[in-house]
Nucleic acid binder design. Structure first.
Lengths: 158, 158
DNA sequence: CTTAACGTTTACGTATACGTGAAGGTGCGC
DNA sequence: GCGCACCTTCACGTATACGTAAACGTTAAG
C-alpha cells in the first residue's frame, strides 16, 4: 500500500497579499512577524515569493487574535507560540517519519504548548472578569446614589 | 546612617511615589498619563507637588488594569474613560452644588460611562473565550492523534 | 538651619510595531 | 515579448509609551 503524498496543488498556496487581505493585516506586518520568528511561510516560489498554506493562515489568525483581542505584545506572543523552528521541523518531521514514537513525541510537545496557551488565556479572562466586577461595583454605588436622589435625598458622597 | 523608611503622609493625600509604589507603576508613567489627559491629581501642595486622593488611586488602578490586563492602548483607555475634564468638573461640581437635579445629571452621565466600560470589557472577554475555544479544539485533535498512536495507529494527519 | 530624600519641568533617548518609499525582480494575461 | 500588478530586500521614518538625565525647588527630620 502506497501512502498518498500530501496533495500540493499550486492553488492551495496563497501569496502574501491574499493572506493579508483575508486576515486584515498588512503585508508589512506579516513580514515583520516572520522577521521576529513568529512564523515562516510553508514555501517559496521559484521567484522567492512567500507562499502560505492553511496552517500558516491559521497561525497568523491566532497571532492577530493574541495581539488585537488579548493585547499581548509580539514578544509575549513569541513566548506563547514558542520556537517556530520546532514547529517547522515538526511539520516536516511528522509527515516524513512513520515512527510512532517520534510522532508521539511531537504530539506530546504540541499538547504541552496548547495547554499552556489555554492557561494563559484563561488567566487573562479571569483578570478581565475582576475588572468587570470592579466596574459593576461602581455601577451599584452610582445606582444607589441615583435612587437616593430620586427619593428626594441629597445623594451625599460617603 | 539608615535611610528613613517612607514617611507616612500626614494628610489623606498621597504623593506620586507613594501612589506609584502602591500600584506598581513608575512616576514617569503616572505623569505621562496625566500629560495624555487620563487623570489629574486631586490637588497640588504649596510647592506644586502632585497630591492624589483615593479616587485618583482607584482610577489609576483601573487604567493599569486596562493596560496590563486588557491590553488597551492609552488612546483606547482615553476613549473608555472619556473626558477627564468632565470628571474633574464633576468632582468639584458635585461637592459644591446642593442641587439634586445637577447631581442627578452627573450621576446619570457616570452610569452611562460605567455601562459602556462593562460592555467593552465583556466584549473582550467573549473574544478571548473564542480564542480559548479554538485552542481547546486544537487540543482535542491532538489528543485524538495521541490516542490513535497509543492504540498502535499511525497517527496520520487528516 | 541644614540636608537628604523627594518633587518639579524640560528635553532628549529608546524599544516596539510597524509605515513608506526605493530599486529591482516575478507572474501572467495578451 | 510587453505591460502591469505583485513580489523581493534594504533602509529610513514615525507613533506610542515610556526611560533617563539635567537643573532646580520642596518637604520633613534632626
Amino acid at each position: 500500500m502506497t501512502l498518498e503524498p500530501p496533495a500540493i496543488s499550486p492553488s492551495s498556496f496563497l501569496r502574501i497579499q491574499e493572506v493579508a487581505s483575508e486576515l486584515g493585516l498588512t503585508t508589512r506586518s506579516i513580514r515583520y512577524y516572520e522577521e521576529l520568528g513568529l512564523l515562516s511561510p510553508a514555501a517559496r516560489s521559484d521567484g522567492a515569493y512567500r507562499l502560505y498554506d492553511a496552517s500558516d493562515v491559521d497561525r497568523l489568525r491566532f497571532i492577530k487574535g493574541l495581539r488585537d483581542d488579548a493585547g499581548f505584545s509580539l514578544a509575549e506572543i513569541s513566548q506563547l507560540l514558542e520556537d517556530e523552528a520546532a514547529r517547522v521541523r515538526g511539520r516536516e518531521a511528522y509527515s516524513h517519519t512513520g515512527d510512532p514514537a517520534e510522532r508521539r513525541t511531537i504530539v506530546v510537545d504540541s499538547l504541552a504548548r496548547v495547554d499552556r496557551q489555554a492557561r494563559i488565556l484563561r488567566d487573562k479572562i479571569s483578570r478581565l472578569e475582576a475588572m468587570v466586577a470592579a466596574v459593576e461595583a461602581r455601577r451599584t454605588r452610582l445606582r444607589a446614589r441615583l435612587a437616593d436622589l430620586d427619593a428626594g435625598g441629597s445623594g451625599e458622597l460617603r
